[in-house]
Nucleic acid binder design. Structure first.
Lengths: 211, 211, 211, 211
DNA sequence: AATGAATGAGAATTCATTCAT
DNA sequence: GATGAATGAATTCTCATTCAT
């Protein structure tokens, strides 16, 4: 199940080492996502992650401070990558309708192509202790803010009706995406299922909040 | 596993005893909801529930087979009560629009008035093991079915646009409700917050799926 | 499984009550022997004994101070009854050979006809705590003394060789009886199995296996 | 479940480590025997064994799957060692009389020099659950078979009388040994006590107590 | 840097016993 | 006398984390 995946040619010296380190870190995170999704956060043993990642138990702790930190890193990394793509895509879009539709599509595309992440985000994330949520909730708030910003922009530009509080719309939209992902991940998780869902959610939301 | 209150003729005091038993059971469930919401399912000690309910640790096990069973009972009781109210209310409503709006309002009203339950449903429920989820997921599916039925009914009656798969709409609507409840419960949980959210969600959804 | 067994006609008044009490006590002991033999001392729940005896859990404690006391009473009663029979039979026997052979036969006959007791004596008795054994060991010592007395008597009368310490012989004989009972009870426990064993043990002890 | 010491060529230090592991395992078993004998199986806390063995509680479980498994290993190791000695000694003996006398002597010598084991075998072994006994009973049956084989051999060779079923004799002999060990271990357990008993048991079995 | 053996804190659950009815 | 609901003490085992090698 584990792929050692040491790439053939890499830069010599320090950067090789740095890159080897980054790769091992990534391998551990990947393994963590899979085991968390498969067994749940609490039922996951650190040794299972280590085993799937092909490292010793203790090695995990050279890369992450704790099992909790592993979950935080996993989520923050994924959100970070998502934000990068999102930010870039937003640049080329000009209407709020387009932007909102793209956000919806992008989130579901990402999760559809990373099944394990989909379950981690919709399920396992909520298994973790209150303190841990404290670290992650701000990241989510950032995302809600971005969605709300697009809604507010659409309202200012006359694209959207103005009787709906942007943040409340953002929470509902995020919830809808989370909900379809959850039922998809816990169910058959069929190919293309989330992509189709994105279309439906976008149409309902845009018709619903459109002027 | 519990014996329901015995009906008409029984030894004197029996009905009193049965009712005392039902009351103690309810007290334990209430305590469980509060502690689960406060500390999370895994961080909750059975002894904390017992202490808050004012019974001995062992007494919990005279009413529920395990900590897991306690969570299942908590959720099933709440869903059961919700369904009862829902079914009765649906009788007096005739359009699908009214019905859908009522479902949205009812779910959020119920959870707003039971803050602890709101957190249990949106957060703690997902902390429990796969096997436990197996027991609860069917109950949720029933709820999704009811929502999807109303959507399909609206489509047949010409109230709703027909290009949206009812079950997908149901999943999105449920997700939206779950999402606003989650952000409400994890945030300030201000009075009336969910009631206002119900209005927004209903308007977005009905405009969105309306013809 | 339980036989209420209230006998039809008994003496009126206090003695009736006393006898009813004695019968209930006997029923509890009988139930205890069966459950101990079936499940082992530690695995036996007091409530199982109560259930088999057809009384409430608390009732057990009106007759016996504790689960330990129940085991002590069970064993002492059985040994007491055994001693009564033994003492009477000894009166009519005159040689030490006859006496020893009779002891061997009597012990195995008794245990063969009370399968549960056989297991209680050979197995469950040793499951109990050191303090409990302290109460029972003296009873066993009495038995060893009787056997040793017969051996010493045989030596005085010239029936038995005199180079063997009577108490050591007694311990070996008792062990042999215990051993055949144990293997019988843990095995098929076939009818007549112990009776045949009695004959063999008696012959080995009295004559040896050498030609 | 444990990995036996790896043979010839392995990383340097490996054999040292394997031997350290074997030593720790032995220390735990030794500690277990002592505590079981002292307090009884059920009254023994795993933490007491750990403490006496000088390891942490959890370490016990790196070597044995459970408290039950610890008891099984203890008994099987001891029987295994006994069988090794027994098999070797039997080679140099030629008459069944000699062999039987040697078995008797050897068992009692072994137990006399391992007082704790004597109590474990005669007492604690019977405290364990039915399932555990299932694992150990076959080992005992092997021993009974060996004794019975010697008896049958003696009968074939004309050394022993032929009117006694070998297995029944084996059960009685084993019982006699078990009985003298039990009374010795529960009593003063005086030095040489079992050695003297061996002599008496052998003489009784081979020649009987009759004159 | 990597390993993996060792650590030891921590908690659900059982069940003998009590006592209000 | 009898009941059985309630009590609460008591213990095995797990597993995140450490650290000697």
């Amino acid at each position: 199940m584990e792929r050692p995946a040491r790439p053939a040619k890499s830069k010599p010296g320090a950067s090789t080492r740095a890159s080897a380190k980054a790769q091992k870190r990534a391998r551990i995170l990947q393994a963590a996502a899979e085991v968390f999704a498969e067994r749940g956060y609490h039922a996951t043993r650190v040794s299972e992650i280590a085993s799937l990642a092909g490292v010793a138990d203790g090695t995990i702790y050279l890369y992450f401070a704790s099992k909790d930190a592993l979950m935080v890193a996993l989520v923050e990394d994924a959100i970070g990558r998502f934000f990068e793509v999102l930010d870039e895509e937003m640049l080329s879009l000009h209407t709020a309708r387009e932007k909102l539709a793209r956000i919806v599509a992008l989130q579901l595309e990402l999760l559809e192509s990373h099944r394990a992440l989909a379950e981690v985000f919709t399920v396992n994330l909520r298994e973790t202790r209150r303190t841990l949520r404290t670290l992650i909730v701000p990241k989510f708030q950032q995302y809600l803010d971005r969605i709300a910003d697009v809604v507010a922009e659409g309202q200012r530009r006359g694209e959207f009706r103005t009787d709906l509080p942007p943040m409340l719309v953002a929470r509902a939209v995020f919830g809808a995406l989370d909900g379809v992902t959850l039922t998809w991940a816990l169910g058959r998780a069929d190919m293309g299922g989330l992509r189709r869902a994105a279309d439906v959610v976008a149409r309902v939301v845009l018709e619903g909040i459109g002027r």
